[in-house]
Write a protein that binds this DNA or RNA. Structure first.
Lengths: 331, 331
DNA sequence: CTGAAAGCGCTTACAG
DNA sequence: CTGAAAGCGCTTACAG
């Protein structure tokens, strides 16, 4: 591997000068710079950023830990973050946070060992060891697409508001028996609260967990048969797919026999004209990047109270919700 | 930041000993190791892998460059690779290869500067500067999900064989007017060759590019109206979505009015019972990882001729292809 | 089994 | 504007 010493020798300068040419410092004459660059090109010199990181104590690297479920949202947001950080010469080390024990802790240790300057991670649940590790390190840590630790900044969609909005939307159109199908319980509160506000009693048919996913189709079918909702909110691409297959099997037409709303755009929602609410990938990604860069570029960390940012979701109205009118048996 | 010197001091040993405890070397007594580990825990010591990399000349890092299109296959394969390499203590630096000029070259330079030990990248087209850069560096470079450089190993699906197989499958069921809709031309040959083998004349209606994607719906509609294929092969999730929406608009039923086959599973193919052929994510990801690890772990690079590996695709037969029989007007 | 010492390839005050 | 020198935090022959 060719080093700055080789380049210095060929160019007839010191390694300090070579270094200066490759840093932002303009304390070098054009003629010297040209000599160095010529020598470098001739030798195929590529500066060793590992050595630079060690000496300068700045790795220009950010750690990204995302949940290893095949939800396109995570990948797409990761792509936006990576692309944004690249513009500022930051690299990203990617790792995956599976549900198996200690996976996040291990990933964070690896990232910290690589001296990343900031970390963005999707939290699954609160883990005291993770908390301690992140607290004792002083690298900026940002929770992304979730919020399990009150101590760290977080950026996520406002799922509570989104679910509330959907529920109100359905109620306004005459629906009173609404079913939310979602693998996690985090969107349940928005539904229940909005029902209560509208003086509609909630019951067990309002929230259905489709887990385990292998059985989601039969779970959903049973739930529909048993509770006969007039409207369903389906969270996750997998849930929507399973739901639509079940509805087809039961010969339910949308929206005549049942109303459906989905979370996040996907081929099926477009094809069947399903109204959706969902993540704005570009927006989320750039907001996360902005937070990260704020801490990366200005090293004057404010150190104030943790900030928990909720981003608005995007609502796309199509024709999958029926307006229930008087005389209809559901009312 | 606490260093090995701090740990050494507290443990009453030398930094060399601390280093040995954290390396695989077992040249240290249990009692010494315990002293070091205790001190390390007490201080919250995390070994600096940047320094380790510099000294040992092994970064334990792999570079991954994937195309920045929102095709879930790329992300999912990247996830498998990352997870596999993690098992061997390798980190991955992720970057994105957009179509804009020089993006791949820049990404590779950054990765080389970070002294990655191997690179996997999705090639878009051949670029002589990329070729030169990769040749002059001596890090192992593997093309992934594509093959633009004969000089480097490649792993991809056998799209030629897959398209041939699909075409033969359709011909065997009486189809002679087959339309392939695909954003890239790389699958065209498999279709044309198989038509020729079956003594079916090819014509311009056999291959349609749906680009630009914003107009794909109208391009597809025009093509169907003009050429009236009996069967369509749709490559890419976006193309299938656009196609299905067009078919619905034209009131074509599948498979009675038209037969459809898609590349890669997605919600829509499951929902509408579309027969698919496609990538086996886990298989592709582990094969790529195996290649990478072969070169990472045994430093004895064979240096033989480049290897171009084609992986089998997975065929899932559903009910979207009609058997055209005698008396049917299409024959 | 353990330590002292050299050195990986850079950066950056400090002089000049 | 440029160079000599120290040093970032480790690893690893070399002795003992």
């Amino acid at each position: 591997m060719v080093t700055s010493r080789d380049v210095a020798k060929l160019a007839g300068v010191s390694v300090a000068t070579v270094s200066r040419v490759y840093s932002d410092s303009n304390a070098v004459t054009d003629i010297t710079a040209r000599k160095v660059l010529d020598a470098a090109r001739q030798l195929g010199y590529i500066p060793n950023t590992v050595a630079r990181s060690l000496k300068s104590n700045r790795s220009r690297t950010v750690g990204l830990v995302i949940t290893n479920i095949f939800n396109p949202v995570f990948y797409q947001v990761a792509a936006v973050i990576t692309t944004e950080l690249e513009k500022f010469n930051y690299k990203v080390i990617l790792s995956f946070n599976s549900t198996y024990e200690r996976s996040l802790l291990k990933n964070l240790q690896t990232l910290l060992a690589a001296r990343v300057e900031a970390i963005a991670f999707t939290p699954l649940f609160e883990d005291s060891d993770v908390l301690e590790l992140l607290n004792s390190s002083n690298v900026y840590s940002l929770q992304v697409l979730g919020n399990a630790y009150q101590q760290f900044d977080s950026i996520m969609c406002n799922d509570y508001a989104a679910t509330s909005k959907l529920t109100q939307y359905l109620i306004d159109r005459g629906h009173r028996n609404i079913m939310l199908i979602c693998p996690t319980e985090d969107r349940k509160e928005g539904l229940l609260h909005t029902l209560a506000v509208n003086r509609i009693d909630s019951y067990e048919g309002n929230y259905i967990s489709p887990l385990p996913l292998e059985n989601s189709a039969s779970i959903i079918e049973d739930a529909i048969t048993k509770y006969r909702p007039t409207a369903i909110i389906a969270v996750t691409q997998d849930v929507l797919t399973a739901l639509m297959i079940v509805l087809k099997k039961l010969h339910y037409n949308i929206p005549d026999d049942i109303s459906v709303i989905a979370y996040d755009e996907n081929p099926l929602s477009q094809y069947e004209n399903i109204t959706t609410i969902g993540h704005n990938i570009q927006y989320i990604g750039t907001e996360i990047s902005r937070f990260l860069l704020d801490h990366l570029l200005e090293k004057n960390a404010p150190g104030g109270a943790p900030r928990h940012i909720f981003l608005d979701t995007t609502f796309i109205e199509r024709s999958s919700v029926k307006e229930l009118t008087r005389g209809n048996k559901e009312i």
